[in-house]
Design a binder for these strands. Structure first.
Lengths: 95, 95
DNA sequence: GTACCATGCAACCATCGGGTTGCTCATAAT
DNA sequence: ATTATGAGCAACCCGATGGTTGCATGGTAC
């Protein structure tokens, strides 16, 4: 809908989605079923989250045989970094 | 609900809310009714947006007589700056 | 070829979110 | 004292969202 910033913020607003982003970031790549083991939700729910992240341009997929591997886009990597920075920013400023 | 980052991202996901943030940023301070003139929505809708922004810690209010003036918190100012930077970031990388 | 495994798709459900209208309350302004 | 203005409920509407279950499909492995 032509509100790129809105889509990105919307995507990052959900904790599961941030977790997914972080997990892919440290693994380099992941599939929906792999991610499912990491979260207390079904594979289909994970798939939806991945679709949202893809819609926001943070993640992209490539089908390899019977599985679909996701990896971060450049924007996704930038945001993963920013998230780290933000978390540290919060830690430092709170206690 | 103890997901500070989520609340902030959620707050920033909405264009009206980003507009409100920017408007207060350049004015220094604003009331709900003032803001209403800036957006195609009712005063009550604006009030809800302000409540959301306040909940995310981006804005704070102070009642002065019969009006309630809102201004940015420190976090709010930081985010307003980051938003500017992000927009410029997007402009530069797209065309 | 048969069985298995990761996906994809669709319907459905409950909650949330952005928005509205309508009314009351308190503080100015006259 | 009356009126006008700004704010604060509360109830309601409806579309989006996070989640589920159930089933169909297409590769892989035997």
């Amino acid at each position: 809908m032509s509100d790129p910033l809105g889509q990105v913020f919307g995507a990052l607003a959900d904790p599961s989605r941030r977790h997914v982003l972080g997990f892919i970031a440290e693994r380099g790549t992941a599939t929906a079923t792999e991610l499912t083991g990491e979260l207390p939700i079904t594979r289909q729910a994970v798939a939806k989250h991945l679709a949202t992240l893809a819609g926001a341009g943070l993640v992209e997929s490539e089908r390899q045989g019977r599985e679909t591997r996701y990896r971060l886009t450049e924007a996704g990597e930038e945001w993963d970094d920013r998230l780290d920075a933000l978390r540290r920013h919060l830690e430092r400023r709170k206690p």
